[in-house]
Design a protein around this nucleic acid. Structure first.
Length: 496
RNA sequence: GGCGCAUUCGUCUAGCGGCCUAGGACACCGCCCUCUCAAGGCGGAGAUCACCGGUUCGAAUCCGGUAUGCGCUACCA
């Protein structure tokens, strides 16, 4: 790459940033960082009607969360600003005017009603829909008359009606379109705002964008863009059309596919580094086996040559696995720090806040290899925080035991526990294992009963460590309570 | 309907004419470990490389056609 790499992520704030969109941003960012170029963020807010409140913040927040920093754009500025298209209207209007003067564009006075009717008719006659060029030949004098009369007008491109447009896409290779199949598309809307086609071409030129990495859905629009580049006399960038991201049913990713907005992944407790790793592997690969790749290795090795040309389906299960891998690789201090906000948010309201960091750090090693998402932590550890446990009494009667046996097991355990001089893993181990034998129980039966007594559930982290984290006093009182619960149960309750 | 792009295990992918009786990962199944659940280890099943022709001594890899999927076809991006 001889010229300086300047790429851009140009989201439209018409919705929340979905993962496909962010993946496009990621490839741009990786490409820029790999080549030590510039990553530019430009907000394409030219569709006033569809603009969604808060979308810009959500988009920028998503980028920040993933650690994709931008060299130019909102907040940071830059030499080619402003970076909101709504603040660059004069630039587009000037370009449109230039095209009209050159004869490459013309004013169109067709009303939306006429266009709708025209389209309906074309569809009825099974003709390809497209503007019928009704206003293409209006004379200069008529234009003046219309202007005076106050008619609303748009500016359309005077698309060449013969020959074809060919370009080389970095990923797809040579692509050719018949010019005659492209209608006279709108450049400037009646409200003075540009369409995407005009605005992006003007800005990419002015901002000296070297490579346009965007989703494949833009491939069909590229010939229009080429025509504009030519008419405006701009230098061509390299076009790179990235494969699309699809939902499980192979259709374009949308809300019915579950979580699609990047912010949802953040709130569910996916780690940003796992998310980046996963997204990078959707349409790009390092080699035939590497799955876990650090951010640095991603940057060092990213290459357009290894971008695939086929659309990919967003596979949640693999993301979950990968997130688990990243979680397991965290230090307990780091995991604790990340988990605290989730506990603050999800633990029952009666648990007093703030949650103790020291206490959480003791619990973390017990669940670190058992979670895939940070939001799962509260549900797995609430018994460490709550006072009295609430559980089904028959849980206390583990497989092949009965009420009497369970009661005996608990009472003997309680007795021995009280006399235990030290409360650590080793002493619990040397006390409890022989006890099982003594009671003629399998360790699973004894430990299972104790587990329910102490945690209120049949599935929990390893018993000894859990008891230690809970503390001797709490274990004793919970076992006492379990004994009482058993006593209140009807006689015939047995477990098979 | 027209135009464009794509097509390797369910999913993400490796593969760029002989290394492929197609490799890895997720998910799935079994075994081991084990106080439950995980994690981990080992193993298994899973792709006639969409289909049909052609080129070649030889094709998942090159060419053509068909089918299917997706995208575009807005005063949306």
């Amino acid at each position: 790459m001889t010229e300086k790499v300047r790429v851009r992520y140009a989201p439209s704030p018409t919705g929340f940033p979905h993962v496909g969109n962010i993946r496009t941003a990621l490839f741009n960012w990786l490409f820029a960082r790999h080549h030590k170029g510039s990553f530019i963020v430009r907000i394409e807010n030219t569709d006033v009607a569809r603009t969604v409140e808060g979308a810009v913040e959500a988009i920028l927040g998503g980028l920040r969360w993933l650690g994709m920093d931008w060299d130019e754009g909102p907040d940071v500025g830059g030499d080619y600003g402003p970076y909101f298209q709504s603040e660059r209207l004069k630039l587009y209007q000037a370009a449109a005017k230039q095209l009209v003067e050159q004869g490459d564009a013309y004013y169109c006075y067709c009303t939306p009603e006429r266009l709708d009717e025209m389209r309906a008719e074309q569809i009825r006659l099974k003709q390809p829909p497209g503007y019928d060029r009704h206003c293409r030949q209006i004379s200069a004098t008529n234009n003046v008359l219309k202007l005076i009369s106050g008619s609303r007008r748009v500016i359309r491109f005077r698309t060449p009606m013969e020959k074809q447009t060919t370009f080389t896409d970095y990923i797809r290779g040579e692509v050719t379109f018949e010019n005659a199949k492209i209608d006279d598309f709108i450049l400037l809307k009646s409200g003075g705002y540009p369409t995407y086609h005009l605005a992006s071409i003007v800005d990419d030129h002015l901002m000296q964008i070297s490579h346009i990495l965007r989703a494949e859905e833009w491939l069909s629009s590229t010939p229009r863009h080429l025509m504009l580049y030519k008419a405006l006399g701009y230098k061509l960038p390299q076009f790179v059309h990235l494969p699309m991201l699809l939902g499980a049913d192979r259709s374009k990713l949308s809300k019915r596919h579950g979580a699609v907005s990047i912010t949802e992944y953040q709130t569910q407790g996916y780690l940003p580094e796992a998310m980046m790793n996963f997204l990078a592997l959707l349409g790009w690969s390092l080699d035939d086996k590497t799955e876990i790749i650090s951010r640095k290795d991603l940057i060092d090795n990213f290459s357009l040559k290894r971008v695939s040309q086929t659309a990919a389906i967003f596979n949640r299960e693999k993301l979950d696995w990968m997130n688990g891998v990243y979680i397991r690789n965290l230090s307990s201090g780091d995991l604790t720090r990340r988990v605290i906000p989730f506990l603050e948010r999800e633990l029952p309201p009666e648990v007093k806040r703030p949650i103790s960091v020291e206490y959480v750090e003791k619990i973390i090693p017990l669940i670190q290899e058992r979670i895939k998402k940070l939001e799962e932590v509260a549900g797995l550890t609430d018994f460490f925080f709550t006072g009295e446990l609430d559980y089904q009494p028959d849980l206390l009667i583990v497989k092949k035991m009965n009420r009497e046996l369970a009661g005996k097991a608990l009472e003997t355990s309680l007795l021995k526990l009280r006399r235990l001089p030290a409360f650590d893993e080793e002493s619990l181990e040397t006390m409890l294992r022989p006890l099982a034998e003594e009671l003629e129980l399998k360790t699973g039966q004894l430990f299972g009963t104790l587990r329910v007594a102490v945690t209120g559930r049949a599935v929990a982290p390893p018993l000894f460590q859990t008891m230690i984290a809970l503390g001797k006093e709490r274990c004793i009182s919970r076992i006492k309570r379990a004994i009482a619960i058993l006593k209140e149960m009807p006689e015939e309750t047995d477990s098979e």
